[in-house]
Amino acid sequence: MTKAVFKKGWWVPWSFLALPLAVYLIWVYIPIIQSFGYAFTKRDSLLYKTVYIGFDNFARMFQDKQFFVALKNNLVWLLYFVLVPIPLGLFIAMLFNNSFKGNRIYKTLFYLPMTLSFAIIGTIWMWIYNPDAGFLNMILRSTGLSDLARPWLGDSRFMTGALVAVGVWRQVPYIMILYLAGLQSVPVELVEAALIDGASWWQRFTRVILPVLAPATIVSITISIIDSLRAFDIIYVMTNTKARAAEVLASYMYTSSFQYQDYGYGSAIAVIQFLITLSFILVYINRTLKAEQESGL
């Protein structure tokens, strides 16, 4: 299935895997499994009173309007996270990946949004979205587009869009880094030649560069699916998770568990969120692994 370098003994790969796998199982999988177990119980976040209630939490979820609001918003996040940052990040990485003077400065500047914590990103963007003194509405008003000015975070129709925009703003530099790392195996002349030689540009791009970038693309798409479906911090910081129109699954499970003290229900949402993400990922990973096998890479 993968290119086998060594076949000395079955224990060789396991000796490399033993330590990381042990750490991962103990610290990540045990909490996850515990948390999933709670989904079949009725309990508050103190984890006292354990009552097994079977699938009741799940049954309740499918009648819960708020759950579907969150699910729908997550799909919006997913759509934008796959469609915008990946092509844009790739484009910017290719743009900056040259031998011109100053390209390092551009890379550094463009990376800046990634160095901020979500709390800070949220605070800064709240100043931009501020309905009265905020930058966005000011620009709209001064350019004669005052009809478009609105309370971005106060109107349930625009909330999710406004929040996704912040997510995308931070995600593009991230994807850029992944592609910059990938582009290291592409000689710079190839990229420049591809840019100069207008006629075969597209061909060179699709036949030479994209295949070399496959690892970066696989990581980018996988990560974008995961990040969009577990989006939390931006929503938490900018709406305190209380703007229910903008809620996503992660914020709803947080609110349920810690604000409503309904830990069993929160865990049930986590299980569903996990299964949804897993199904997206499995479809994608299976396809790429198959392609990998066929191309013999």
Binding site: M126, P151, G154
Partner: peptide, 8 residues
């Protein structure tokens, strides 16, 4: 007040 929900 306008935008009450977006103000702390």
């Amino acid at each position: 007040i306008d935008n009450a929900t977006s103000l702390s």
